[in-house]
Design a protein around this nucleic acid. Structure first.
Lengths: 222, 222
DNA sequence: AACTTGCATATTGAATGCAATCCTCGAAAG
DNA sequence: CTTTCGAGGATTGCATTCAATATGCAAGTT
């Protein structure tokens, strides 16, 4: 039993809980792109009625994670290579902005946190532990976003990056590219330390653009 | 009458229609920020039941146009000055990206269209016709976004700029600022003509940042 | 044999009903 | 006179029901 003091009866609406749950299932790959979403099945699985489920599907559709086909149900969105490129162009720009703003607004505690995670990431890189590396990587990018002190930016970043989250495992992680990514992270961190927003933004943007290149193997025109 | 081949009997769901209608009402100021949205009243007004209306409200909440208070209904979102600044930072960055991409991808027809609207806008400027000027202004910004050839960017731009659309009339339009805005538009158009993305992006960003300044009278730190 | 055509079934879209929660307003206590 | 409490009504959240549309299959036609 949870303490009623720290857990204010945790009463999230079924609707909100369903949105969060489905979103995680999609971004984490439990529901694969292109797969049909049967209302009835999910209702049974979640133990809820169709009303909150359908509300959740509409919200996820507006986030671009699912597509609603009139009278034919919902599918998990599948991005084309061009759409993947388009999303990355946006993510790269948003993160550049986040880095630039973070240089203005970050405090020492947040910077120290990023440095600590960076060290852990470097260690995972040395040991070639991909999943752990990605986890640290994502923590750093999210920390930079938070440090930017712009809640809407964090929201937009999450919105677009959710669409391409699954793609990160598709990347062709050559040792050379991985080494370059680590160097880029060093530079980014350094720019943050110097509070050099004019440098930090472009560095982050280039970093993300390189990542896109590894994802598509250069198949998509910029 | 349209050909029955190309128009398969326009059938939009009540839900989608309601989203569009409510969104317009909010961005155009028919529903004022902070005002309560009574489900029942809108149902009667639209002649629909609560189900599609509630679905629409959830979607608009995910777009940030309304806030849902658990068991207490919906209100039209009211942005603080800081949130207005945050939104503008994002819009400025997105539009800079749009301008940069447009320089790569715009064709002559789209450029000619922008030039035509620009001339109309200049004429409205000379006659000091504010509403008409704004209309042209918005058409140009939307055209640049479309010319970027990134559907998700257009979508994100609309998402964030919808939140601040109403604010444009709050701007302190001094003659000096208005003249400067026109000069900036000239420069932006010129960069587009030259396909100079490296110049066009920053010009657009600066243009939007100046606009924010006129909105807040410099009250908000950058 | 392949292609329509019509009907039965399944699924989605929207409306209604019911229980839980919140707000109003007045009365009573301090 | 102000504040607290609570009953009644209104509103929301969710489940259920009804209606509209699509899918699948079988029979009939060419």
């Amino acid at each position: 039993m949870q303490s009623s003091k720290v857990m204010p009866i945790a009463r999230l609406s079924l609707h909100d809980e369903t949105v969060a749950r489905l979103r995680t299932m999609i971004t984490e790959g439990d529901l694969l792109p292109g797969s049909r979403i049967a209302e009835r099945e999910l209702c049974d699985r979640f133990g809820i009625s169709r009303t909150p489920l359908r509300e959740a599907l509409k919200v996820l559709a507006s986030e671009g994670l699912v597509e609603l086909l009139p009278h034919r149900g919902a599918r998990v969105t599948r991005l084309s290579e061009v759409e993947l490129r388009d999303a990355f162009e946006i993510v790269a720009t948003l993160e550049a902005l986040a880095g630039e703003l973070a240089c203005r607004r970050i405090d020492e505690a947040a910077l120290a946190h990023i440095e600590a995670v960076h060290l852990r990431m470097a260690e995972h890189y040395r040991r070639a532990e991909l999943a752990e590396y990605f986890a640290c990587n994502q923590i750093i990018h999210e920390a930079i976003n938070r440090a930017a002190g712009n809640a809407q930016l964090t929201e937009m970043y999450a919105l677009v990056s959710n669409r391409v989250r699954r793609a990160r495992y598709m990347a062709n992680h050559s040792p050379e590219r991985w080494a370059a990514a680590m160097r880029e992270h060093e530079e980014i961190l350094d720019a943050l330390r110097r509070r050099d927003g004019k440098a930090c933004g472009p560095l982050l943007r280039a970093h993300l653009e390189h990542k896109l290149y590894t994802l598509t193997d250069g198949n998509v025109a910029p």
